[in-house]
Simulated assay, not measured.
Amino acid sequence: MSGTSDTPEPPADVRVEPATPADRLDVLRVLDAAMLATDAATVDDRIAAGDALVARSERTDGVVGALVATRPEPDRLRVDAVAVRRARRGRGVGSALVAAAVRRGESDPAIEAVTAAFDAELRAFYAALGFSVRPADPSVDSPDRLLGRVSTAGSETE
């Protein structure tokens, strides 16, 4: 994804930015509506670290999407949860959030890769964003889970 002109941008009426403590409840609501299990303490920690992003409506200033990334290892940024309000799905908001997380990883010299674990039906979504995709470890994840990885050390995925 690094240095390419096809990096997804948010729709014209949406901006992606770091989440602030004032966005906490909106982030939790968006993730909860998508039935994603991310606890409030993790959201608070990731907001403080700058690793939580929101997609905000230019018209209403409301949060229409959220992404929470964790750092399971010092050199890896992991997309832990990404969700978009139902009325805004299919319009590029989720892609813009993930692309912004990759850009965040690229801007941090300590980060070598951005990763994600996801269900098989999301393979095309992550592949289109430049992630290399492989099956997850069945001893750790369910057998239908996949792992995606994009290198931030350069423009090539590993």
Rank of each mutant, 00 (worst) to 15 (best):
R71C: 00
R29F: 02
F118Q: 02
L28A: 13
V27K: 03
T115L: 01
D44L: 00
T115C: 00
D39K: 11
A22F: 15
L97D: 09
S95G: 15
A34F: 00
M35I: 03
R91K: 15
G130L: 07
A101V: 06
A48C: 02
R71T: 06
R29N: 02
T60G: 06
A41G: 00
A124D: 14
P74C: 13
P109A: 11
A99R: 05
P18H: 08
R103I: 01
P8Y: 05
G65C: 07
G105Y: 07
V63N: 06
D108N: 08
M35A: 06
E106M: 12
R88Y: 15
D108W: 13
V98G: 09
V98C: 08
D26W: 09
F118M: 00
R89D: 15
V93F: 11
V102M: 02
T38N: 01
P10C: 10
G105H: 06
A87R: 14
V63W: 03
A34L: 04
G94C: 08
G92F: 13
R89E: 15
I47F: 03
V64S: 09
R76N: 00
S95H: 14
D39R: 14
A66C: 11
V30N: 02
E112Q: 08
G130R: 03
V84H: 08
G105M: 04
A33F: 01
L77C: 07
A34N: 05
P72A: 12
A124K: 09
P10L: 12
A87D: 14
V43C: 03
D44K: 02
D44M: 06
D23S: 12
T115R: 02
P109H: 07
L36W: 07
A117M: 01
A110K: 04
V14F: 12
R76I: 09
A49H: 12
S95F: 09
I111G: 00
A120W: 01
D108M: 13
L31V: 03
V63P: 05
A100H: 03
L31H: 05
T42D: 04
R89I: 15
V54W: 06
E73G: 09
A117H: 08
A66E: 12
D61F: 04
L77F: 03
D75F: 13
L53K: 13
P109F: 01
R56Q: 11
A66V: 10
A110Q: 11
A124L: 14
A40L: 08
A19P: 02
T38C: 09
V16K: 03
A41Y: 05
A19S: 11
A22L: 13
V63S: 02
A49W: 10
P11E: 02
D32R: 10
Y126S: 02
G50W: 12
T42F: 03
A116H: 01
A69H: 05
T70P: 01
A87I: 14
E121M: 08
